[in-house]
Design a protein around this nucleic acid. Structure first.
Length: 673
RNA sequence: GCUGCUGUAGCUCAGUGGUAGAGCGCACCCUUGGUAAGGGUGAGGCCGGGAGUUCAAUCCUCCCCAGCAGCACCA
């Protein structure tokens, strides 16, 4: 008589199963509904096939499509296999390599047969069709343990040089597995997989594009074709994803920035923004808002140099570590060789002194702190700066306003005693909460912990990390997401752990913007100190912090979050007075004068165009309120207000309209309850 | 920085080995029209930069630059 296996379930119950039974058998024993719904299993924490037998007593959690994260991962991995099978079935002689799941789908790297062009977009419809055929055939996906030699022989026999190369590098002793799809195709794979191809929804995936990729990511290796797809659990999810992509494309800040005449970029200054009057208006409103917030929170604003001698950057540690991202400038007049009308050839003497444009503000803030002698009575000292920084980012990383080479941070550094850290971080957490809520964002806070390469002692890191945890615990946050503090091991800066604010925008994307970091390294390197109660010198803790992150990026996020329809207080043009007939011109002009006097950013549109045309144009320009005036309004002293996004107009007196606009144009921090 | 793709009028894009076209926008004329495109006429381009092949290059080849997508990166 064999001994039964003890399988414990998440609810604490234990089931006794025959040896050789599988998670699927457990599901069936619990009930037919679950047997049908279970698609995979977590056995002792490891995600496994539903039909893989237990190897002993185990803790079991059954996975259904409700466990979305696991289910998606499995489905995408399966889609990748089906993709590879489909390609080989359609184009015999194609070699397969690897095919993992991605954030929204899957890809597979393949090499087309020698007698064929690499695969292109044109091949995708055929491949999709073949994939649907394989899914509909509901081929069982069966796990089998093979020896390494067996794998090598199989791949070599089939001319799969990439797979064979990989198999040869697999460890000798580990259990190596293949997955059969039906009886006629298999791939080397660690698994797990769904029970059969039919578990996939044939309407829940779409092949999206092809790209070149090198074998094992090395450009000295042969080039493969990577076929990308997006994959989901059902058609509804797929459609939602495709709609989200379309919606995101419509909101693209680069497109809206051009259409709304906010800014432009051009190659002569790539990575730096040319702000147009309307775009800079948004900037100025944000800046004024942030100044009010910081003034009230006890910060004092400073302005520090763009250029500092490289020796200063050597001392701070940046020149050694991050020089490749910094712009350096010779501290001399370059020799210029005149070449007629042609280009001048500047040259720099070999003994030139070098200066660097600041990539961050912190060292300069320490230098301000260090002027004179600071008493513990003066702490905390909060130094803020709208700090314009330059970083020479990898060119492939540049992206509209989101990743630029010149940007301005809403930066500040708080110098305080160790005892004051938690209190200061708490105050910052609450300040950030107010700000993000004013813009209608929810957010998650994450804690990035010490990286492998770091400065400072482990004791200091223990302290710094715990301070941030403690501050979060005692803070009052209302705009937050699920309220859990996620910790990210290894993601901190080399000098400090950081709290990061990840905003969620109107269509569910997340953006990292704000941060606060508890730094004990830089004050030490730059020898910052204060005189304590004991009359001795002490090191202050330096808190680096920002809420918008950078104005460029934050404006980019706002444009996409609001799809260009900025709240009235931020809108570059808050209202346009548009005439229906030229007889109303004088009335319109008078209305504009009154609106301007009330502080409204208003323009007039007296052009000889039909009102339909004007409505359309100003709607496209995302002007929040259109004040339409014709003979009737001019006689009655009224305006017909058409608000962006609404079909109906409202007629009211000009004075009422001004009061309404004034109220809406008030920044959220100035609204009196 | 890596891979692929792209670069033609202010914008969105056609097109061709013999120096170019549309729609929108812009200017002017007609039209004074009541809530998302009224009509007409016209101006506007070193076809990203450089080199090569060619009788001839916006088009073919090579190099560079920038943009886009992905990757890597983001102190």
């Amino acid at each position: 008589m064999t001994e039964l296996l003890k399988i414990s379930l998440p609810d604490g119950s234990v089931r006794e199963m025959e040896p050789g039974s599988t998670p699927g058998d457990v599901a069936a024993a619990i009930g037919p509904g679950l047997a049908k719904a279970a698609i995979a299993a977590r056995v002792d924490g490891e995600l496994r096939d539903i039909n893989r037998p237990f190897e002993g007593d185990a803790e079991l959690a059954l996975i259904t499509s409700r466990d979305e994260e696991d289910a998606l991962e499995l489905a995408r991995h399966d889609f990748a296999h089906v993709l590879a099978e489909a390609v080989q079935s359609l184009y015999p002689g194609t070699q397969i390599t690897f095919g993992p799941a991605t954030d929204d789908g899957f890809y597979y790297d393949v090499k087309a047969p020698a007698d064929r062009e690499p695969f292109s977009m044109d091949d995708l419809p055929d491949i999709e069709e073949e994939m649907r055929r394989i899914i509909k055939a509901d081929k069982p996906l069966r796990r089998e343990v093979w020896s390494r030699q067996q794998l090598i022989d199989k791949w070599e026999a089939e001319g799969e040089v990439f797979k064979a190369e990989w198999a040869k590098e697999l460890p000798e002793n580990e259990e190596l597995t293949v997955y059969w799809s039906g009886e006629d195709w298999l791939d080397m794979c660690r698994g797990p997989h769904l029970a059969s191809t039919g578990k996939l929804d044939p309407q829940a995936f779409k092949l999206t594009r092809v790209a070149g990729a090198y074998w094992r990511g090395d450009q000295n290796n042969p080039q493969l074709t990577r076929i990308y797809g997006t994959g989901w659990l059902n058609k509804k999810q797929l459609n939602a994803h495709l709609t989200r992509l379309e919606e995101a494309a419509k909101r693209d800040h680069r497109k809206l920035g051009r259409e709304m005449d906010l800014f432009h970029l051009q190659e002569e200054a790539h990575g730096s923004v040319f702000w147009h009057p309307k775009g800079y208006r948004i900037w100025r409103e944000l800046e004024a808002y942030m100044r009010r917030k910081m003034d009230r929170a006890g910060y004092r604003e400073i302005k520090t140099p763009q250029l500092m001698d490289v020796r200063q950057w050597e001392q701070s540690g940046h020149w050694g570590k991050y020089a490749e991202n910094m712009f350096a400038v010779p501290d001399m007049v370059p020799e210029v060789e005149e070449l007629g009308d042609g280009p001048a050839n500047p040259s720099v003497a070999p003994d030139a002194d070098w200066m660097a444009i600041k990539p961050m503000n912190c060292p300069a803030h320490v230098l301000v702190f260090k002027q004179g002698i600071t008493s513990y009575r003066d702490l905390p000292i909060r130094l803020g700066e709208m700090g314009c920084c330059h970083r020479n980012e990898p060119h492939g990383a540049l992206h509209g306003l989101m990743r630029v080479r010149q940007f301005t941070q809403d930066d500040a550094h708080i110098f305080c005693t160790e005892e004051q850290v938690v209190e200061e971080v708490k105050a910052f957490i609450e300040l950030a909460d107010q700000v993000y809520r004013d813009f209608g964002f929810t957010y998650d806070v994450k804690l990035a912990l010490r990286p492998e390469k770091r400065f400072g002692s482990d004791e200091d890191w223990d302290k710094a990390e715990q301070e941030l945890r403690d501050a979060v615990a005692v803070s009052d946050m209302q705009g937050e997401g699920d309220g859990k503090l996620e910790e990210l091991p290894g993601e901190g800066a080399f000098y400090a752990p950081k709290l990061e604010w990840h905003l969620t925008d109107a269509i569910g994307r997340t953006w990292q913007v704000g941060t606060i970091q508890g730094d004990r390294v830089l004050p030490d390197r730059l020898d910052a100190s204060y005189v304590g109660e004991d009359g001795e010198k002490h090191r202050p803790v330096m808190l680096h912090r920002a809420i918008f992150g950078s104005y460029e990026r934050f404006i980019g996020i706002l444009i996409e979050h609001f799809a260009g329809r900025l709240p009235v207080w931020l809108a570059p043009v808050q209202a346009v007075v548009a005439t229906i007939v030229s007889d109303a011109d004088d009335y319109a002009k008078a209305a504009v004068v009154k609106l301007e006097a009330a502080g409204i950013r208003v323009e007039s549109d007296l052009r000889n165009e039909k009102i339909n045309y004007k409505v359309r144009e100003h709607s496209h320009a995302k002007v929040p309120h259109l004040l339409v005036v014709g003979n009737r309004e001019a006689e009655e002293g009224t305006v017909a207000i058409r608000t962006l996004g609404e079909k109906e107009q409202r007629v009211m007196s000009l004075d009422e309209a001004i009061a309404l606009l004034k109220a809406e144009a008030t920044p959220p921090d100035l609204v009196e309850d």
